[in-house]
């Protein structure tokens, strides 16, 4: 059924801290690694060792520059499905293959009923859906549905692959429908925001903006240079140094 269910109380999603992300792409790589054997496996690569290698990824890291001169910022920007509250990718689906889960709000594709018309990818403003030319069906981030509820994993590992691997802890996973959850508090404290709010898709995933620069850093009394002047050697070595320096 591609009509949307009533809004779920639980809204599982990600909070991505653009102040912390170092742009290492580990989240994208671990996403590919896990999901190549996960719920939507395989994530087909075409011409993987050739000149025109391309394939399906659920998570991609873009890097942007914003502003000019000293005030400008370089921001690494990971982007995956935002599991919107009003996902038009679901409502445009003619077959019912795309759906939003009632229990936790995760948006999924049923690969057994998808006809591969690609209309959902046109309806997504964010480019979250990628067509698998080999399988002939649309694929997308599952929020690692096969990890977060997986009782065979240690409880600490029941988070999406991108979150578990991030070496900088720039990615947070949780219930954004619960105002008291750690992720909701983070969003409230740091001014987390929606991407393209003008589209009115109400994305669940939030982005935390880069923090303000700490003005005045570096004036704590430390020497401005680490290269301390070496005392001139005396005696024979000093004579040699003076001769050789001529």
């Amino acid at each position: 059924m591609t009509s949307l269910p009533p809004p779920s109380a639980r809204k599982l999603g990600l909070v991505i801290d653009l102040d912390v992300c170092v742009g290492c792409h580990a989240c994208a790589v671990n996403c590919k690694e896990w999901n190549a054997a996960g719920h939507s496996a395989p994530l087909t690569d075409l011409d993987p060792y050739g000149a025109n290698a391309n394939g399906v990824w659920f998570n991609r890291v873009h890097s942007f520059e914003a502003g000019e001169g000293a005030a400008s910022r370089t921001v690494h920007f990971p982007k995956s499905c935002l599991h919107c509250e009003e996902p038009a990718c679901v409502t445009v689906c003619p077959t019912g293959a795309s759906y939003k889960r009632v229990e936790d709000g995760i948006v999924l594709v049923n690969p057994d009923t998808c006809i591969g018309c690609k209309l959902c990818s046109w309806a997504c403003p964010y480019g979250a859906r990628e067509f698998d030319h080999d399988a002939g069906v649309m694929k997308k981030c599952t929020l690692c549905i096969d990890r977060i509820y997986n009782e065979n994993l240690e409880e600490a590992d029941r988070v999406p692959a991108c979150v578990s691997t991030c070496p900088a802890s720039a990615r947070h996973f949780g219930d954004l429908g619960d105002p008291g959850s750690a992720v909701s508090r983070l969003v409230a404290e740091r001014g987390g925001y929606d991407l393209m709010p003008e589209m009115c898709y109400k994305p669940v995933n939030k982005y935390l903006p880069p923090r303000q620069r700490q003005c005045g850093a570096g004036h704590d009394g430390a020497p401005s240079s680490l290269a301390a002047p070496e005392p001139a050697p005396g005696g024979l070595l000093g004579w040699l140094d003076r001769v050789l320096s001529r």
Binding site: L18, A66, R73, P209
Partner: peptide, 8 residues
């Protein structure tokens, strides 16, 4: 990107 506060 939501980064308009920094500029273009």
């Amino acid at each position: 990107t939501g980064l308009g506060a920094f500029g273009r």
